[in-house]
Amino acid sequence: MELFYSRLGVWIGVLFTFAIFSFLYKDNPFYKVAEQIFIGLSAAFWVVITIYDTLIPNLFKPLSENFGGNIILLIPAFLGVLMLIRIIPKLEWLSRFPIALLIGTTAGISFLRYLKSDVLNQLTATMLNPFAASDWISMIGEILLIVGTICGVLYFYFSKKHEGALGTSAKIGIYFLMVSFGAAFGYTVMGRISLLIGRLQFLMGDWLNLIAH
């Protein structure tokens, strides 16, 4: 029986795989069916994960085990309910209170996190001595890294017209950004192709048993 359901699962997977790939021809009912089922399953998946991983351990369990000691948790629970009230247009304004708390916390955390990791740490990592590198390739690379980072940052400085020394630096910055975009594009293509290979392996291996898996 278990084998039957296992094979059935493979066949269901194959049907949905073909339904999605049918979009390559044109938008059609099979694709629409698969798309809507994907949306429904995704939403339910995240609801279930949120309930089990966040709401139960952080809210329901502490309240059910020691209500008096964790009574303060009723405040975020109340704010959470206010958040849900947003769905009623007349009472929509009530959701501003929990949103304000979320936005305030996010802004505070973002301020600190980005200051440390995205500005200070990145600048610290750029402060290299290329002439202390182990070989000449690393030395050239580190010089490129320093010049590229400085020029790239200067490109994003829009408070002054890009002309003269700033214009030249910004132009060099664009070159580095272009190389970066090209590399990122190449990496993305490879990632998508590997997903496609994974799909073909599923069809050829799990379904048709033409290749070992």
Binding site: Y114, D118, L144, L145, G148, C151, G152, F176, L177, A183
Partner: peptide, 21 residues
């Protein structure tokens, strides 16, 4: 990937980080 790409990404990260701050 290690050098020019990191330089470009780093410039974007610093720029975006300053914007987020």
């Amino acid at each position: 990937m290690k050098y020019p790409n990191t330089a470009g990404q780093r410039a974007i990260i610093v720029g975006a980080g300053l914007g987020i701050i």
